[in-house]
Design a protein around this nucleic acid. Structure first.
Lengths: 248, 248
DNA sequence: GCCAAACTTTGACCCAGATCAAGACGGCCC
DNA sequence: GGGCCGTCTTGATCTGGGTCAAAGTTTGGC
C-alpha cells in the first residue's frame, strides 16, 4: 500500500486492478479464465465495516474504487490505523483464517473478491501468484516500517506533512497537476481518521493543518480540497530524505 | 519476526534455522541439497553494521545466533528501530537490489546467507519457497502493525511492558521458567536501543523500568537480568487484549 | 428553507515525556 | 588498584501535544 510500486500499474489496462496486482503479473490469460469463476464484487457504503478483527475471513480481494482503512483498537477505545487501502490495494492473507484488523469503508467502496480456498488452490498451481503476492506484501511491510518512523519520531507538523505527501504522491499518478504546476487533491479522510493514522488527536490535526495553511505550505478550499504549491517544500516539512525514503 | 508462529519451529531439528523457515517448509531434502551450494555463514561482532540502508544487498539470510536490529534514521539523527531480528528471523527481500534499512548487530551475530540471485532462481523453481516467504513476510507485517499501535497510542509504561512481554514470550519458548513459575530472561538491548524501538528517550525508558520494578511487576538483577513473577500482570500493564492480540 | 447531526476550528489549561544536568555503577585496560 | 569510558539512574525544569470546552461550518433529511 501507499508506495511507488503500486503506482506503476497501468490504469488503462483493465477495469479490475486485481488482475495486475495479484493474479496477472504477466497477464497470462489462461490463469485469469480460471479465476473468473471464483471472482465476485462486493459493494459497501461509507462507514460500513467490511470485516471485524478476529472474524472468519473467507475471501481475499482488492479495492476497485473507494477507500478502506485497517485499524486496531484497544479495549479502552484507543485506536490506531495501521493501513490505508486505496484502489488496487490488496486485502487478505492467504493461509490465515481470521482477519487481524477491522477493515472499514471510509467512502463508498467496491471490492473485487476471490473466495479464499480456491484462490489459495490457484496460488499453489501458479507459482507467480505467490511471487506477486510476496512482492506486494514486501511493499506493504516497507510502508508499515516507514510509518513506524512517522509514529515514533516525528512531530505533529511533520506527521501531517508526511500524510499529505503520501496522499499527494498517490493521487498525483492519477490526477493531473493543475496549470500552475501545483498538486491538487481531496483529502479522503476526516480529521479524526487522520488523527488515528498519525497517533494524534483530531484537535492537533486541525491545528497543524491550519498552521501549514498559514505558513503557505498548503492552501485549502473548504475542509478537504488541498493545493500543494511546492511539493518539495511539503517534503521538507515532512522531514523526509530528499529521495523520498522508501519511495526511491 | 517476534510472533508465535516463529516460536513454533522445533529447535532441535537442525543447527540452521533457515532450513525450516525459508527453504524447507516441508523438509524436502532434494531442494536443500541444491541450496547447500549457495549457502555460506557470516559472523559479526557486537556493534558492527551488517549493511547500510541504500547499499547494494546481494544476499538474503537468517539469523543463526545473536541479535540484530533494523533501524531507520532521519538526517537530523532521530532514529527509529523498525525490527528486531532474533535467531531464525529472515533478512532480505527477494526482488530488491538495495537494503531499505540499516541492519546492525547488537550482540555477536552469526548469519546463514544465500547469494541472492541463485536463491531467487531456486525460489522460481520451487514454488513453496515463495509461499513460505510470503507466510513469513505476512508475520512480519502483522508484527510491524502491532508495533504501530504501540508507537502511536500507548503510554511510556505500556510501551515498556509491551517490549518486555515480547521478549519474554520469545525467550520463554527457549528458556525455561524457573522453579517458582517466574519467567526469567536477559534484556538483549541497551536502554538507548529500547528507546529507539519504543519511540522514547533513554531517560524515560530508565524511569519506567524503575517504576515497574518499584511496583513489583518485574524485578531486576543488575541492569539487564529480568524476572517476571506474573506474566498476566505484565500483559495487563502492556494494555494488550487478554488473548494477546496478534499472537492469538 | 430549516433543523439536526456530523465535522471542524479555536481557545485555555494541563501533564506525560523530553531535555538538561549531575552522579553512580560497572567493566576493562594499564 | 586506579582511572576511564560506556551505560544507567535520578532530579529539575520545560514544552508539545493532550484534554476540556465552546462555537462555527457543512451536509442531508424533511
Amino acid at each position: 500500500m501507499l508506495n511507488e510500486r503500486s503506482l506503476s500499474i497501468p490504469v488503462d489496462c483493465t477495469e479490475c486492478p486485481i488482475r495486475h496486482r495479484a493474479v496477472c503479473a504477466r497477464c497470462e490469460s489462461d490463469e485469469l479464465e480460471r479465476l473468473e469463476e471464483i471472482k465476485y464484487y462486493r459493494k459497501f457504503e461509507a462507514g460500513q465495516t467490511v470485516i471485524w478483527s478476529g472474524d472468519r475471513m473467507d475471501f481475499v480481494g482488492s479495492v476497485v474504487s473507494g477507500i478502506a482503512t485497517l485499524t486496531q483498537t484497544m479495549e479502552d477505545g484507543r485506536t490506531q490505523m495501521v493501513g490505508l487501502l486505496l484502489p488496487s490495494d490488496f486485502v487478505g492473507r492467504p493461509g490465515r483464517a481470521n482477519a487481524a484488523y477491522d477493515v472499514v469503508a471510509t467512502t463508498d467502496l467496491v471490492m473485487c473478491c476471490f473466495r479464499k480456498a480456491p484462490f489459495e488452490e490457484q496460488m499453489r498451481q501458479t507459482p507467480h501468484i505467490a511471487q506477486r503476492l510476496l512482492e506486494m506484501t514486501l511493499d506493504e511491510l516497507d510502508a508499515a516500517r516507514e510509518w513506524m518512523l512517522v509514529l515514533g519520531r516525528k512531530t505533529a507538523r511533520e506527521k501531517i506533512a508526511s500524510l499529505l505527501s503520501i496522499i499527494a504522491r498517490r493521487d498525483a499518478s492519477i490526477n493531473m497537476r493543475n496549470v500552475t504546476g501545483s498538486i491538487v487533491f481531496d483529502l479522503p479522510l476526516t480529521r479524526e481518521a487522520m488523527a488515528d493514522y498519525l497517533g494524534l488527536t483530531l484537535e492537533t490535526v486541525s491545528r497543524q493543518i491550519s498552521a501549514l495553511r498559514k505558513d503557505g505550505v498548503i492552501s485549502l478550499e473548504g475542509k478537504r480540497h488541498v493545493t500543494v504549491p511546492d511539493m518539495q517544500r511539503l517534503l521538507d516539512e515532512a522531514g523526509d530524505d530528499s529521495d523520498g525514503g522508501v519511495f526511491a
